[in-house]
Simulated scan of single mutants.
Amino acid sequence: MAVGVMLLAFWLILCVALSAMTFGTRDLSGLGRAGFGLCALASYPMVWWCCRFWYAAFSEGRREAPAAEPGAWPWTLPMLAVCVVLGFTSARDLVRGNSGAWFGVGLVVVMGGLSGMFLLMEVREWFSARRARRNPPVPSPLPPSARSVESPRPQRNWGSIGR
């Protein structure tokens, strides 16, 4: 429980701090302000995810049907936002002649590839769940007594292991 509270508090503080940096600082360039704003917008779904997770956890025994746990897609948004910001700043530094920006490009490729893969897996899962909802399984026309029932597997008693 303590981990969940700390996670929610961390993302909430991060969202407020990034929003304050976006709107409160006058010294930022347009690209810096857009970067902080993008990271703030990507972090707000994490707060929503934490709240939904806590709602599902606390309503588990109190309702007839359990609350659905939220999907994992918000976890990819902050990483993608950092990749976009890092990609733009690395490209800007490369154009200016700074060869140290190649590290940022490599980091964008690795982080962007991983987060893009996770996002594609989540989209694929979303479409398959949607297809399953649209095409429910057809019930069998046979009565339950006529359906083949798998016989239980035999239980083996191997004795004690120490012999």
Rank of each mutant, 00 (worst) to 15 (best):
S128P: 01
L31K: 01
G100F: 15
V82G: 12
R130Y: 08
M46G: 03
G106K: 09
R52E: 15
P141M: 13
S43F: 02
A56W: 05
V82P: 00
P78Q: 07
S59W: 13
L28V: 02
C83G: 08
P143G: 04
T76V: 09
M111A: 14
T76G: 11
S29I: 01
S145A: 14
R33N: 05
F127W: 10
N135F: 07
S59D: 07
R52D: 15
E69D: 07
F103T: 11
P66F: 09
R63E: 07
F10V: 01
G104L: 06
S43D: 08
A42W: 01
G24P: 00
G24V: 00
L80Y: 01
P137E: 04
V84S: 05
A72D: 06
S19M: 11
R96M: 14
L80E: 08
C39W: 00
L7M: 15
L18R: 00
C51I: 15
G116T: 07
G112E: 04
G35N: 03
F127P: 03
A57K: 04
W54F: 12
L80V: 03
Y44S: 10
A42E: 06
E64D: 13
V109C: 14
M117W: 14
G61L: 02
A101W: 09
E125S: 11
A132N: 06
G30T: 09
L38K: 04
G106D: 09
G30E: 06
P143T: 07
W75G: 12
L94Q: 06
A72T: 14
C51A: 14
R130I: 05
E69T: 15
A67T: 06
P66Q: 13
P66C: 00
F36C: 12
R63L: 05
R130K: 13
M117K: 13
M111L: 15
G104N: 03
P70Y: 00
L77Y: 00
T22L: 07
A132Q: 05
M111Q: 12
W49D: 11
A91H: 01
C15A: 13
G113Y: 04
W126C: 11
G97L: 06
F118Y: 07
F58N: 14
S59M: 09
F88N: 04
L107D: 07
A91F: 05
T89E: 11
N135M: 02
R63S: 14
P136S: 07
V85L: 01
V16M: 05
P139S: 12
E69G: 09
R26D: 13
L7G: 12
M121N: 12
L41I: 08
P74S: 08
I13G: 07
L28W: 06
A9W: 00
C83H: 01
M46N: 04
A129H: 11
W73G: 12
S99H: 03
A72M: 14
